[in-house]
Amino acid sequence: MSSILLQVTCSILAWLSLYSGFWCRNKHRTPEWSCRMVTFLHGLIVTFLSGYTVFIDGPWPLTHAGHPNTPLQVFLICLSLGYFIFDFCWCILFNSESDLMLSHHFLSMCGMTLALDTGRSGSELNAIIFVSEVTNPFLQMRWFLRDSGCHHSLIGDVVDYSFVTLFLGLRIVGGAWIVHSVMNSPKTIVTLKGGILAMYAVSVIFMLDILSFARRKTTKKYQARRSERTKEDHAKRN
Rank of each mutant, 00 (worst) to 15 (best):
W15C: 05
S132H: 06
S17V: 05
G21P: 07
C24K: 14
V173M: 11
T39I: 06
V54I: 13
I172N: 03
L139N: 11
H105P: 09
D117V: 07
R225F: 07
C89L: 14
A224S: 14
I85C: 10
L72K: 10
V46M: 03
H67L: 03
E228G: 02
S132N: 09
V179Q: 07
N69F: 00
I189H: 13
L44S: 02
L93C: 12
C91T: 13
F106D: 01
T165S: 15
G169V: 01
A198M: 13
P71C: 01
P186A: 08
R25Y: 09
C89F: 10
A214H: 08
W90Y: 14
W15V: 03
L116D: 02
V182N: 01
S148W: 07
K27L: 10
R120Y: 11
S80N: 08
I205M: 13
G51Q: 05
C150W: 12
T113E: 03
R216P: 00
G66M: 07
D157L: 04
D147S: 15
R36Q: 14
F213E: 14
G175W: 01
R216N: 12
L76Q: 14
T39F: 07
G174F: 00
L170K: 04
A65M: 04
I85F: 12
N238T: 07
L6E: 15
D157E: 14
A176I: 00
K217R: 15
D99W: 13
T9L: 06
V134L: 15
K220D: 11
F40W: 14
L208F: 15
S153V: 04
I56G: 02
R171N: 02
S20F: 10
L79P: 02
F84D: 02
C78N: 06
A65G: 11
L197G: 04
S3M: 04
N238R: 12
S162N: 08
V159E: 05
C24G: 03
T219G: 00
P31E: 09
D147G: 05
R146A: 12
L102P: 01
N26C: 08
V8R: 07
G122K: 00
M207W: 11
T230H: 09
L72A: 10
A198E: 05
R25A: 13
M199Q: 15
V202T: 11
S2L: 07
E232N: 03
F106V: 06
Q140R: 02
G169D: 00
C10T: 09
F206W: 15
L208K: 08
L49E: 00
S2Q: 12
G66F: 08
V164A: 15
F40T: 04
V74E: 12
T70E: 05
T70V: 01
G174S: 04
E32R: 13
I56E: 04
Y222S: 09
A224E: 15
L211I: 13
T165C: 14
H104N: 06
G21S: 11
L145C: 09
F138Q: 01
N136H: 03
